[in-house]
């Protein structure tokens, strides 16, 4: 049977969409600063990029607080369990209309592949972007201006990390946007992220048995 479950809380949704807007905006202005597109005008691109970056950093601070205050950080603890079957699902099962190998629930909203990728984003890509971005803004020209402790001779390496991170985020967004459509129905994931509610299968199924052992809590909740 299917239940309508409140799966994404308001802050979570706000954080998600704000982050989405900011990443798109930062990518557009950032690639203009990088010299490959021409849209806002260079001076504006630089200005907007900085402002958006500060807003993003504030958002990140709030999000970190939220994750720890609510215990939601546990969602991102990676697991190898079902990782294989999740990959198999995307490579094979999805074309045969096979059911999702892992069940979504309030306490486990991410599949093993998502856990892994989002964790990598949170602890590798985003920190790389924030740190290299701040260095980019505050590094001191050789021995002049800026923060004395950041006496960096060249922004070469900083810029290269920042650019590489931008490409990774761009690739992530492309795949992420596509995978939105792989929910129970084409739009179910999108609707969930907008309204917070998603219809979730709580019926006992063949996959449920496997996950019972690992997700005892989930079962409790589902019941």
């Amino acid at each position: 049977m299917k239940n309508k479950v409140y799966i994404y809380r308001s802050f979570e949704r706000f954080w998600h969409w704000m982050q989405a807007i900011l990443i798109f905006f930062l990518a557009a202005t950032g690639f203009e600063i990088h010299g490959v597109i021409n849209f806002f005008g260079y001076a504006n691109a630089v200005k907007y990029h900085s402002v958006a970056a500060y807003i993003f950093i504030i958002l990140i601070v709030f999000a970190i607080f939220w994750h720890f205050a609510t215990g939601e950080w546990k969602q991102y603890v990676p697991t190898l369990e079902h990782l294989r079957s999740q990959i198999d699902f995307y490579l094979v099962g999805i074309f045969r209309n096979a059911p999702h190998p892992t069940k979504k629930s309030v306490l486990s909203k991410l599949n093993p592949l998502q856990k892994l990728v989002y964790l990598a984003l949170k602890i590798l890509v985003i920190p790389t972007m924030v740190i290299s971005g701040l260095l980019y803004m505050f590094y001191r020209y050789p021995q002049k201006g800026g923060i004395e402790g950041l006496n960096i001779d060249s922004i070469n390496v900083i810029a290269l990390f920042h650019t590489a991170g931008a490409f990774l985020l761009l690739a992530f967004i492309i795949v992420h946007l596509y995978l939105v459509t792989t929910g129970t129905t084409i739009t179910s994931n999108l609707k969930a992220m907008i309204t917070g509610y998603e219809e979730i299968e709580t019926e006992e199924g063949s996959n449920e048995e496997k996950s019972n052992k690992t997700n005892l809590k989930e079962e409790v909740v589902n019941e």
């Binding site: 990088h34 060249s154 922004i155």
Partner: peptide, 22 residues
């Protein structure tokens, strides 16, 4: 290194490849 003028061909081409492959 000057933004917009300079870039690493490796990172730009690798990055573009990753995006296109995606």
């Amino acid at each position: 290194y000057m933004p917009a003028r300079d870039y690493s061909p490796f990172i730009d081409y690798a990055g573009l490849t990753v995006v296109l492959l995606s």
